[in-house]
């Protein structure tokens, strides 16, 4: 095939979204393709992205980059045309920064808890089960960051096993965000993030901006050297 024609055909396939990271087309088995986060070092570490049909978790202290990483993942999912669910028992999600991260808000189902609402965590877990069980979403996020550890421990012991069983053999990826390790499936990723240095735009004083925050990430307990990536402020 002449090279010009070949290039034209490749461009056409790219434009029509038949490239490798495009959403699966009708009839294609989506379970085989991982969900890339869009952060190159993380995707390389995970072998392409987060596994579908598994519970994964991203945990770390405040400002470590947990939410940024999961937002980048959700952004790629929604921009590819799939649906994402965000179960937010503490109502911490910010649509403005999500849109700035490229997330298609029209394809995001956001379930918000209410401050002071009793039993918000069990209801959020039940809603998570409903959302993952619908089979409509490629990514479901359960944001447990800031939830007191004692409340998480009060959940029935089989909670995470039940959720893992629900999404096995499905194309859904469930991601937990937490302050500390909660749970992950046998094939899911356990990403521990830690805050790195901040990047400021200049010396202290008027007009200074926070340009970036770095993140150090380890996958699993046996990883000796973390990988690092930088989150931009968008300013």
């Amino acid at each position: 095939m002449p090279s010009a024609l070949k290039h034209t055909l490749e461009d056409l396939l790219r434009v029509r979204r038949l490239q490798a990271d495009a959403p699966p087309l009708r009839g294609q088995d989506r379970r085989l393709s991982p969900l890339p986060t869009g952060v190159a070092v993380v995707d390389e570490l995970l072998g392409g992205g987060l596994a579908r049909g598994q519970v994964s978790e991203v945990h770390g202290p405040p400002s470590a980059g947990r939410t940024s990483l999961v937002l980048a993942l959700a952004s790629r999912v929604t921009r590819a045309g799939a649906l994402a669910g965000w179960v937010d028992p503490r109502d911490r999600f910010d649509p403005g920064t999500a849109a700035g991260a490229g997330l298609d808000l029209a394809r995001l189902l956001w379930l918000r808890g209410k401050a002071g609402q009793p039993r918000v965590l069990p209801e959020a877990v039940a809603a998570t089960g409903t959302v993952v069980g619908s089979g409509l979403f490629d990514l479901v996020v359960l944001d447990l960051a800031g939830m007191p550890a004692v409340e998480i421990q009060r959940l029935p012991g089989a909670t995470w096993i039940r959720l893992q069983r629900m999404i096995e053999s499905t194309p859904v990826a469930l991601v937990l965000i937490g302050d500390a390790h909660v749970a992950h499936g046998p094939g899911g990723a356990c990403l521990a993030v830690a805050p790195g240095p901040a990047g400021w735009s200049g010396p202290p004083g008027p007009g200074r901006l926070l340009r970036s925050l770095a993140t150090e990430l380890r996958a699993g307990r046996h990883m000796l050297r973390p990988v690092a990536f930088v989150r931009q402020s968008g300013v």
Binding site: T97, Q232, G234
Partner: peptide, 18 residues
């Protein structure tokens, strides 16, 4: 389609309401 270009990860805000 909103374009397939990758966005560098952005700093996310976790808002306190109120």
């Amino acid at each position: 389609s909103l374009g397939s270009e990758s966005h560098a990860p952005r700093i996310a805000l976790r808002v306190f309401r109120p």
